[in-house]
Structure formats: structure tokens, C-alpha cells
Write a protein that binds this DNA or RNA. Sequence first.
DNA 1: GGACAGGTGCGGT
DNA 2: ACCGCACCTGTC
Length: 276
Amino acid sequence: MKDLPVAFKVSADYFDVRDTLECGQVFRFKQIGENAFAVFSADKYAEAETEKGVVTVRSEDAEYFWKYFDLDSDYAETVKRISAISPLMEQASSLGKGIRILNQNFEEMVYSFIISAQNRIPRIKQIVERICLAKGEEKPFGRTFPKTQVLAECGEEFFAGVGAGYRSRYLDDTAKRLLTYDAARLNSLDSVSARKELLTFMGVGPKVADCILLFGMHRGDVFPVDTWIKKVYHNYFENGHKDGEISDYFCGLFGSDAGLCQQYLFYFERKYRQIR
DNA sequence: GGACAGGTGCGGT
DNA sequence: ACCGCACCTGTC
């Protein structure tokens, strides 16, 4: 969009827009140019273009996207810390150092990651897109992600209609529950308690709960375990843990950097080691 | 055709 | 608490 004002410009040293968007934490974005991406979050919109080592973000909501892209955090410092853990972490963080953990909308993350269960990214994107097209508010840049008040009245059939499959029941149930849910109280809890609480939502298991915590509540001390991470564990960390213990194991290993380490390892395994 | 996808709920031990 | 299995829908 030409009339979109420049919100800010930042160095691309620790900010690779493509890697950040494609590492599986966000489902509403699209490539709009060779080095340009459009990003949607809740009811907000931005475009990010990278040229000569500088990322230019255009948006009406500068403050929102500054926080969204986590630009107050010093990733150089974190990468240094993670690199010191082991040669593998040094390699993984060196490859993924452009990835930033986004500050996304809590409710959008809840719905999106319920959809993500046993699903591939292109289809997750497609289902989310259909939900926005059908129930989102129309804006100059496209459609917003619908608010819970709207989703709570859609009914299970609506979600089935957009291709959510057996997750439709979970989405419907969760929307109705979020309607009267105290998210502020959830935010006040530590990550372990908040995780326990999230597990009581239909369709939210350990993996989805961790994704909501990491991407929707900015809790860096959690470690989502999916099939890729299981491969990572068995390939490089095998230490006799059962699947259900892998998340705790990595949290103990990486502490407050766990979430970012997960992203680096995920990226590493997926992009550069596509062996089985 | 069947196995699987960035898992989870459920019923059986 | 810990298994094993079915599950919408696409794709290979």
C-alpha cells in the first residue's frame, strides 16, 4: 500500500523478516515483493521490507508493531549467551539469529494453535484466512481476525465449514469459554501455572499451550515440543527421556532462553537437516 | 490405498 | 499416571 506511513526503520542484523515469519509462529502473512512481506495481527496491518541491511516497517500502528517484532529485546546479547551453551547451539543460533519471537494477540494465538494440531502450515494458514474472510471486519488492508464475541456465536458448523475438521468442536467450545475468561489473571500467573490453566481448554494440549505462552504471552521460558523437536532431541540430545519429558528437559537446559532456543533448533532441523 | 501432518481427548489399564 | 487409538482433511 503506497499511502502507508513509515513506522520505523531498524537494522536487519538480528531481524530477518522472512525467517521470523516462516518459522511457524504466525499464520497471517504473505510475501508482497522480493524482500517485502505483509503482516496481519488481530486488527492491525504492517508491511516490512528489507533493503541493504535495513528493515523498513510501514504501518499506521508503529507502537504496536515495534512491540510485535520484539524490538526492545537485545538479540545480539541473547545469541551470544545461547552460542556459549554448545557447538550445536552455536551453529543453530548462528543460522537462526534473524528470528525474533513475536508478540502476538493472545486470543488469535489460542484459536490458531488449536487449528495447528496435526496440521500443516499451508492448511493452517488457509483455515485462518477463511475465518477472517467470513467473520473478520473489513479494513482498507484486508480483514481483521474476528473477535471472540463474534466467534462465540458462529457455532461448530461454521468452523467445520472452513475446514477445521475435528478441531471445530474445540474452537467453538474455546470461543464460548473465552467470552467470559479473565485473561489478565492468566497473565499474572507464572508460566508453569498459566500452562496448567491453558491445558483446561478444549483442544489445548502441552504443545499448543506452550505455543500460546511463547507467541501469545511472550513467555520465553517455555519449550514447545513437536515432531521436529522430537527429531532434534533424538538426533542430538538423546538422554533417555520419554516424549512427555522432553519439554521439561529443554526448559531445564535453556532456562529463560528456552523459547528462542526452540525456534533456533526447529529452524536448524527443518531448513538444514531434512533427513527424515 | 495408507501413512502422515508442528497433537489432543478419551477410554482402557 | 500412563499408554493406545481415533480423528477432519489434504497430500504424497
